[in-house]
């Protein structure tokens, strides 16, 4: 799962990007224009390396952190089948994190360095995981709609220019299709269930539409020279707004079909085929990215706890020759 396709938070660095050899740069851009993939040992502009690395790293962190809100409900899944599906999904998300860290590592940053940057708050992850999963219906909404959003984003990114990222995404998208379907199944089960179940899923929808789902793809892009370059380099494949429109086009009808509502009175399909909607509070989006969301502290505290409390296991495995110690008593 992933969203906020591109969180740009250090424009200063971007402006100071170094000047590249024009001949190599032209050849690099020509390769991308021809549809070739860039591989780890190919020449690439420093700015390309930095941007792709940051994007894959954010994606990896999002998968790892994304396992937490859903993991909350493993112990309390309503049936054995739902529990098995949820465990499998959460395991997949962590697996995706590992695949993506591996892809990011090919650009020269170690996994330890990436995790340290996550724990220190330097690296970001998708905002959507900083909101709590309050009831079982939240799990259905996440599995259905957050994963649907992730698929829109990841199918676009899978056509990008960096080979290792595309290959990781190929497998990830395949597994996400199961996530989406099991989420849709759980969602429909509640929506077609008892009045209390319908009420539960409606309540979850109301909380997840604003702000998490409407924030998911990030604010409408300002078309700058920088954005154009990222699109030319096939780092960014679709604008945030294009992805949001694609998402609404595919999924709003599926929600309405079940007689459920979305908490946006403006929401409707316009005559030109695009969707009209109320802009969410983008100030909140930036507040949450910078640490002030309902669950930011908890999410990072859990990761820190896991790293600290897993250390003795890693150390024991690292040094299997450790001597036997005679017990005290």
């Amino acid at each position: 799962m992933y969203g906020n396709a591109y969180i740009e938070n250090d424009t200063k660095l971007v402006q100071s990007a170094q000047v590249e050899d024009p001949e190599k740069l032209a050849e690099f851009e020509a390769r991308i224009a021809r549809g070739e993939k860039i591989e780890p040992d190919d020449w690439m502009p420093a700015e390309y390396r930095r941007q792709v690395l940051r994007m894959i790293e954010q994606h990896a962190h999002s998968e790892i952190i994304g396992a937490l809100p859903e993991g909350t409900w493993i112990t309390r899944a309503p049936t054995l089948k739902r529990k098995l599906a949820l465990i499998a999904k959460v395991q997949d998300e962590v697996g995706h994190g590992h695949l993506l860290y591996a892809a990011a590592e090919t650009l020269g940053k170690s996994r330890e360095a990436m995790i340290n940057d996550l724990l220190s708050g330097k690296s970001k992850y998708s905002n959507v995981f900083n909101y709590p999963a309050k009831t079982w219906a939240d799990i259905a909404v996440i599995g259905f709609l957050v994963d649907a959003g992730a698929i829109v984003n990841q199918l676009a990114n899978a056509k990008g220019s960096y080979g290792p990222y595309c290959r990781a995404l190929e497998r990830i998208c395949y597994e996400e299709s199961f996530h989406l379907k099991q989420g849709y199944d759980a969602f429909v089960a509640l929506a077609t269930g008892t009045p209390m179940q319908r009420e539960m899923v409606q309540d979850a929808l109301n909380r997840w539409w604003f702000p998490p789902l409407m924030h998911f793809f990030g604010p409408p892009d300002t078309i700058s020279v920088h954005t154009e370059k990222l699109m030319r380099w096939k780092v960014k494949m679709m604008s945030n707004e294009e992805m949001r429109q694609d998402f609404m086009e595919q999924y709003v009808p599926k929600i309405w079909e079940l007689g459920l509502t979305l908490p946006d009175p403006k929401l409707k399909k316009k005559e030109d085929g695009s969707w009209e909607y109320t802009q969410p509070d983008w100030d909140e989006f930036f507040r949450v990215i910078n640490g002030d969301g309902p669950c930011n502290k908890e999410r990072l505290a859990v990761r820190r706890y896991a790293e600290e409390n897993g250390r003795w296991v890693r150390e024991a495995l690292m040094n299997p020759t450790i001597k036997h110690i005679v017990p005290y008593a």
Partner: peptide
């Protein structure tokens, strides 16, 4: 924080 190569 993690040390270099702590994840093997």
């Amino acid at each position: 924080g993690l040390n270099p190569n702590e994840h093997w």
